[in-house]
Nucleic acid binder design. Structure first.
Length: 216
DNA sequence: CACCAGGCAAGTA
DNA sequence: TACTTGCATGGT
């Protein structure tokens, strides 16, 4: 079986077993951008608590957050962990959004995806995964997001070496799947759900995983 | 108690 | 370039 067929089969098996993921859980593109930073190396539950703290204070707009002092932002997002680092990163992102598009995210997304990706990567605190999460989940560009779960799962299934780089791992999917943002959206979500439930870092518990039959 | 979570940048050699 | 370290809360 070739990679393209196998990757599509994985998607279908996971979809049938787990059902729709409804990603990204956010009410606006801007919320996706915030969540993308807040969830860096952090479980979504903690990131979500931080988002809700901002929501309670009606701070979930770029203008309101931009006006908020960084120290106050840091206090509010404390539950997300790395809160000082993340406050600085969110501030850097806000400055970028203001200078690049006057906080108009719709306008920001008018440019070619490669151009926007390059610009996002210049923002301190926005790496490849965060940039791609924003491109796919906030703006619906057909960009496949990969993460540590993706690497672990695909390595365990012998698709890639353990130390596979971000770009190489991403190309495994983009070179073998149709460039469909809805497909990429759901596929990444399903892989994260598999990772969380059955493909943990230590004590690999494949039992019960929908993809167990495919593990070599 | 230890380990982990939807990373990233800065420092070192 | 290749490797190491700091960042930090909350759940299991």
């Amino acid at each position: 079986m070739n990679r393209a067929s196998l990757l599509m089969e994985y998607f279908q098996v996971l979809g049938r077993a787990l059902g729709p993921s409804h990603w990204w859980p956010a009410k606006s593109s801007f919320e996706v951008c915030l969540g993308a930073v807040l969830t860096q190396n952090t479980n979504w539950s903690n990131a979500s608590t931080a988002i809700e703290a901002l929501r309670e204070r009606e701070l979930l707009s770029p203008e309101r957050l931009d006006a908020l002092p960084e120290a106050e932002l840091a206090t509010l997002i404390r539950p997300a962990g790395y809160f000082r680092v993340k406050a600085a990163r969110i501030k850097a992102l806000l400055t970028f959004l203001r200078l690049e598009a006057e906080f108009d995210l719709t306008r920001l997304a008018q440019q070619p995806v490669e151009e926007l990706r390059s610009k996002l990567l210049t923002v301190k605190g926005i790496g490849q995964e965060t940039a791609d999460s924003i491109l796919l989940y906030a703006f619906k560009f057909p960009v496949f997001v990969v993460d540590t779960y993706t690497a672990r799962i695909m390595h365990r299934h012998a698709f890639v070496p353990e130390d596979v780089g971000y770009t190489e791992l991403q190309e495994l999917f983009t070179a073998n799947l149709p460039r469909d943002p809805d497909l990429f959206n759901e596929y990444h979500a399903l892989l994260v759900r598999v990772g969380k439930n059955w493909c943990k870092k230590s004590s690999p518990l494949c039992s019960g995983c929908p993809l167990q039959a495919y593990v070599p």
